[in-house]
Design a protein around this nucleic acid. Sequence first.
DNA 1: GCGCACTATAGACAGTCTGTATACTTTCTG
DNA 2: CAGAAAGTATACAGACTGTCTATAGTGCGC
Lengths: 215, 215
Amino acid sequence: MSNQDPPGHSGRPGAEGAWDATLSRHRSRNRERIAATAMELIGEHGLAHVSMSSLAERAGVSRATLYHYFPDLDHVLLAWVELQVDRFVSRVELLAGAEPDPRARLTLIIAQLTDYFASRDHRLGLEQLGTLAVAPVTARAVAERMSPLMELVSDCLRTGQKMGQFRPELDPEVHASLILGLLGAMRPHLVSGRYAPGGAARAVSSLVLEGVTRR
Amino acid sequence: MSNQDPPGHSGRPGAEGAWDATLSRHRSRNRERIAATAMELIGEHGLAHVSMSSLAERAGVSRATLYHYFPDLDHVLLAWVELQVDRFVSRVELLAGAEPDPRARLTLIIAQLTDYFASRDHRLGLEQLGTLAVAPVTARAVAERMSPLMELVSDCLRTGQKMGQFRPELDPEVHASLILGLLGAMRPHLVSGRYAPGGAARAVSSLVLEGVTRR
DNA sequence: GCGCACTATAGACAGTCTGTATACTTTCTG
DNA sequence: CAGAAAGTATACAGACTGTCTATAGTGCGC
């Protein structure tokens, strides 16, 4: 899937055409920087109060340039989600790729996600974007970009089921989103410092593992 | 706590002064109708694409009148959350008030929340408002309005701990928000029809109860 | 029955934001 | 160096915001 949108702005978030030209390193770095700036702003003022204009100003780029990079604000979010998910998934795959035991794998994924949430205190959690803030088209597109992360978890659950460790009756997809929801709910407590990342990871892991384990 | 804002618009979401005049039945019904309309619109287009103007139009009210009721869109959401939480909490208290057993109480609350989410398919889940969509002040105010719901759950957990049924080491407040987060994550699956409310409630209950029960 | 306070509305205002377009300058690349 | 791509300035119509003033409708006590 294309990581970028053509400057011509192919259209709605869900279905951008592949842009076969290779983007310069500079351009893609700029895209990333702008997206990160957008998330900073959103964290400060809330999505509803962030404009393309203020983003252009904060990112130190002209408004015209901004529209060169993204057709609208929704696409900025989309790019950000895609970036974060890609990065996160490849990191976890690096760490947990060799781990055959589903329980250990799941624990590791949860620990990594907790770390992720805890380290980006003032930034935003991935999970908070698939919501009612943006247009439904965008929400669907966000969900789609999230799917590699979902699959990371649901695959793990499926393997556990096949190996007889996890309950056969649970739906791996549904449970995967429950686990991510759980982590999202934990985020405020991580950010506030009420829970240390380690403690949070343990709490979520134990909740999840006990709910998932075959008795 | 005041359910309304004075027409003079006292200021920021967090701290509106008490407005001691009694509001006419008509006025408070109108407020409610407008808030519900706002949520409809947000569900259709996403918060970022809903304006006071479009809300006025859809609600069949002039823009000036809208500004008479609410100082801005954030306050509309706030009013809606307060209404829903009040309604939900009093309903659960009616149903579960007499139930002394924490496990049964928790199960009932979860079932009620699942029903709530399932019945309002195209509307919005309560949980999706405490996010990055609105200004941080508003987000805090929303969290505050959510607290009766939170307390419903955390009280239940505390009682269970005192009675020795639930693990003493878990933090009731944190766990309460985890449970609500879990329910929020279940909502899309309820809406999509993938899970029947009963099944969802059972899935969440079992996940929660097993994670919570003292071994 | 009358006036008064409250409520609703209309219309206007300056200011901001959007998305688009055109045309100019800078920077990269072959 | 020439041509392409990226970035910029500027302008535009249309929409939205929040505020204001003035006007019309409503319910209530006296």
